[in-house]
Design a protein around this nucleic acid. Structure first.
Lengths: 267, 267
DNA sequence: CATACGCTATGACGTAGCGTCAATGTCAAG
DNA sequence: CTTGACATTGACGCTACGTCATAGCGTATG
């Protein structure tokens, strides 16, 4: 019974600092039975030993992986816990989350482009012959509606001369009309793809779009009622056609970009 | 005052069904002031009009994008809300989440490989000359420790003949030794890369690893104390060298795979 | 020795966005 | 009048703690 008690013990704060968590976390783990201190003094103080430290490290490891505390508890206390399967299932969940987030990003991108479109639409109305004052008032209102985030776009737009503005607005409609004229060809036809290259350049007058933004635009042209109506007015089959053609265009663009990247990597 | 009140009104359930949410959600949105019904009957019943329907659709759209309800509230009620900036910020958050999840997947992959390694380690000990009974007992214990998920790996392992098992185990050490012998060359040297191709094949005896799993193994060999110690014992510089070499190996592999994929796409 | 300071303890509420009872009232149909 | 579907308002539950509030304990200092 006189065996040396030279094992180090830690108070809550010591262990907390050691592991990079707060004392509250340790109390919580105690409460839910995830990590009980090796010993509790008569005064109620918790004391953790080396084994507890190891267990805490394991807990924190699984926590980092995104496991819920009760899963961790199960994994650490039941020896028959199917850890490998749990990890594989977890991996699948993470992958799904990846895909979900990917879709969200696309939708956000499309929404950004949509808003910019609306800002410019209101600008377009304004632009139909008004005084400088009115223009500034309108700009103020656009910022009211869309926030400072729109200011950059508006600024860029206002940096163009009146002639260039007119030219750009006209070009928008022209491109879509042009594509509609070739709607009996394949969406991947060189004619249509050339038009889309122009469309891409056209968009850059307002905003530098990412690949996902372009794809998002294609989806939105087809699926969003407002846009769909606009393009259907030009030609009934245009929305679906546009979506396919844009997807092809962006795929090609991305493939080329990838190959350039790979080429650089290989050197 | 006799103007026709022909606007359609919806009860909670009707609107809920229409929008694909539960009545509870609508009550919640009412509580937090996000969507107040156009009218409340004397009996306390909520009645929504067409405008409410539109507003709800906007709410649900932003909710899908992952916005918090109070942000949505702000965006919909304050005209000066900087929607465009909010979307851009949100996009950044989503991208960060993408990266984070990507790292998690890698770590999970590495952990899976780690576990399989441990299962086989225990198998290896067993394998040092014991009876069939003991082997089966040991297998049972491995399943106790690692769960049914390990059974597949063990099964696969047991499907090999004793001679092949011995050969495989020996090969593991041999490959690492071989790599250590070339540690004075570049990690990208053809010698080392050839060894890693063997290593890759070797791993396939147990499990078909993904690219991320291989990379994760490389990280773990270097960063995880157990593995690091094992490889340091072979050669002090081996862990870091291995990690670099493995990264190069997987990069090359992935590049080649991508190019094949792109080649197929281009046809 | 009183005091101050730092650490400890135990509640208990707050978070986000509803799900899920529970108890009760209302309305149209049979 | 009864039944059943729908309405209402609480109120607790969930995740993993953060953040008080209140009070006891331990040690160094004046």
């Amino acid at each position: 019974m006189l065996s040396g008690m030279d094992t180090k013990m830690y108070t809550v704060k010591q262990l907390a600092d050691l592991a990079g968590v707060t004392p509250r976390t340790l109390r919580h783990y105690d409460q839910i039975g995830l990590l009980k201190p090796a010993k509790v003094s008569p005064n109620g103080y918790r004391h953790y030993d080396e084994q507890d430290v190891l267990r805490l490290q394991q807990i924190l490891f699984f926590r980092e992986l995104g496991f819920e505390l009760d899963k961790i508890k199960a994994a650490l206390q039941q020896p028959g816990f199917d850890l490998l399967s749990a990890l594989q299932v977890h991996r699948l969940r993470l992958q799904e989350r990846q895909l979900h987030t990917q879709r969200l990003i696309r939708t956000v991108d499309a929404t950004i482009m949509h808003l910019i479109g609306e800002v410019l639409m209101s600008e377009k109305k304004l632009f139909e012959g008004f005084s400088e004052e009115k223009q500034q008032a309108h700009e103020a209102q656009a910022i009211e509606n869309w926030g400072d985030g729109a200011r950059e776009t508006i600024k860029l737009w206002n940096s163009y001369s009146r002639e260039k503005q007119a030219e750009i607005m006209a070009e928008g409609g022209r491109i879509y009309q042009e594509i509609a004229n070739h709607i009996d060809t394949e969406p991947a036809s060189s004619q249509v793809q050339a038009n889309l290259a122009q469309w891409h350049q056209h968009l850059r007058n307002f905003y530098e779009p990412t690949f996902d933004m372009l794809r998002g635009l294609g989806d939105m042209y087809n699926e969003h009622p407002d846009f769909n109506a606009t393009f259907t007015a030009i030609h009934p089959g245009l929305p679906a056609f546009l979506q396919q053609a844009i997807n092809h265009y962006v795929d090609t663009l991305e493939t080329e970009w990838l190959q350039r990247e790979l080429g650089i990597l290989k050197e």
